[in-house]
């Protein structure tokens, strides 16, 4: 089975709140002292893929579209034992919209060649749009299943078919789907990303890693560099948290309790 896992490198979402800054001009987060990490849901996707390969065999190619630094995410994936890695270097707008990203990924996947399964994280920890997976399936012209947390290969089928477990608002759904297929993966206790062995981390720096430019993909590179035309961020701000302290008044305990109840009612009605 040929599996392609798309990885996105993002700013560490666990930086201290006080270190988080926004550039009002660019309408984007400022890196500051934050490190760059692989988006956690993408790592869940990779872990799910690695487990699937352990059971069903096949090959895993990891693919990223991003700044040259995204090579670190791909190297880590190689250390976790992905087979091949491809980086499409983004030399344009650093925050392209999901449609532009989906077009780049689709073009890169076509260039990689035949695939059975494309896996992505359900959303990224920076913008959280959660759209790339679905849009990518559209671009590739295949079906997609979202919020998947487990995948099994169906036995005894002449055509490769997958059984997928997907999380819903109310529980789980089990669905079957033929390949080729795009799935977005969510986290589950079974797909916590493995810690690579140090030996493999060392080896990952010696493995080949393909670097492609936007111009090599046969798409409208200029539109991608401009950041896409699908949507744009109009405003971006850090929510301000306000805390207000009021003292309950009253002479007796009964008075205090009724005052408290009145205040709670007041607040909840206002909400």
């Amino acid at each position: 089975m040929n599996i392609i896992v798309c990885l996105k490198q993002i700013l560490d979402p666990l930086i201290p709140v006080r270190d988080f800054r926004i550039d009002p001009e660019l309408r984007a987060a400022v890196q500051g002292s934050a490190s760059l990490v692989t988006n956690i849901f993408c790592e869940n996707a990779l872990e799910t893929a690695l487990q699937l390969r352990e059971r069903a065999g096949g090959k895993i190619t990891v693919l990223a579209f991003g700044a040259p630094s995204a090579e670190d995410s791909l190297r880590k994936a190689l250390a976790m034992k992905a087979d091949d890695a491809v980086l499409v270097v983004n030399d344009g707008n650093v925050h392209p919209d999901p449609m532009a990203v989906a077009r780049v990924l689709a073009a890169a996947i076509r260039k990689i060649g035949a695939f059975d399964l494309v896996m992505l994280g359900r959303e990224s920890g920076d913008w959280g749009a959660g759209q790339t997976g679905g849009l990518l399936a559209e671009e590739l012209g295949v079906a997609s299943v979202s919020f998947v947390d487990a995948i099994e290969v169906a036995d005894g089928e002449s055509h490769l078919k997958l059984h997928l477990k997907r999380q819903t608002d109310t529980g789980w759904e089990r669905v079957a789907a033929p390949t080729p297929l795009v799935v977005t993966v969510t986290n589950d206790e079974h797909n916590v990303p493995r810690i690579p062995k140090t030996r493999d981390v060392m080896m990952s720096y010696r493995q080949p890693l393909a670097k492609w430019t936007l111009d090599e993909l046969g798409i409208d590179a200029a539109a991608v560099r401009a950041g896409g035309d699908y949507y744009r961020v109009v405003d971006l701000s850090i929510p301000v948290r306000e805390t207000k302290c009021e003292l309950v008044s009253g002479d007796s305990l009964e008075d205090k309790v009724s005052d408290l109840a009145a205040r709670i009612l007041q607040v909840t009605r206002a909400m």
Partner: peptide, 23 residues
């Protein structure tokens, strides 16, 4: 155990992962 087997307690793994990405 850590470097060849990547086999060590989960909470220590979290500490190591944090060291790697956040210092």
């Amino acid at each position: 155990l850590v470097m060849e087997e990547a086999d060590f307690p989960d909470t220590m793994q979290e500490a190591v992962t944090s060291l790697e990405s956040r210092g």
